[in-house]
Computed example of a mutant assay.
Amino acid sequence: MTAPGVNDRAAAPNIDVLVVDDDRDSIEELVECLAKAGLSCRATSDGWSALKLLAEGLGADIVVSDLRMPELDGVQFAERLSRFAEGARPEIIFVSGNAGFDDAVAALRLGARDMLTKPVDGPRLVRAVKSAQLARQMRQHQETAGTAGEEVLAPAERRRAALRDLKAMRRTRSSLFPTELFSDPCWEMLLDLYDAQLAGAEVTVTSLGAASGVPLTTALRRMDELQRHNLIERGEDASDKRRTIIRLSESGLRAVDTFFDSVQSRPKR
Rank of each mutant, 00 (worst) to 15 (best):
Q197E: 15
T172P: 00
D192Y: 06
T117L: 05
R113W: 05
A211K: 11
A132V: 11
T144S: 13
G200H: 10
P178A: 11
F84H: 11
L176I: 15
A128P: 03
L153C: 11
A104Q: 12
S207H: 15
Q133G: 02
G100V: 05
S183C: 10
Q137P: 03
E202F: 01
M115R: 05
A219E: 00
A85Y: 00
P123G: 03
G213D: 06
G146H: 04
F101G: 08
E150A: 02
S174R: 15
A211F: 00
S183Q: 10
A196Y: 13
L176V: 15
T206C: 06
F101R: 10
N98D: 10
A106R: 08
T144N: 03
R158C: 08
S131F: 09
I92D: 03
L153M: 13
P123H: 08
L116I: 06
T117E: 12
F94L: 02
P178H: 12
F182I: 01
L163I: 14
M138P: 00
L110T: 07
A135P: 00
R113I: 03
V126K: 10
E188W: 01
F94A: 04
Q133L: 03
E151P: 01
Q137A: 07
L166F: 11
R160E: 11
A112G: 04
S183V: 12
P185K: 02
V95G: 00
V95P: 02
L176D: 09
M169C: 04
V129P: 08
V214R: 13
N98I: 01
S96H: 00
G149L: 13
K167C: 07
A99F: 07
K167D: 08
R159V: 05
L176N: 08
A145G: 03
A132Y: 07
A156H: 10
T172Q: 13
M138A: 10
R158P: 06
D121W: 01
G111I: 04
Y194C: 06
A148R: 14
P119C: 06
D103H: 10
A132I: 13
M189F: 07
G200E: 14
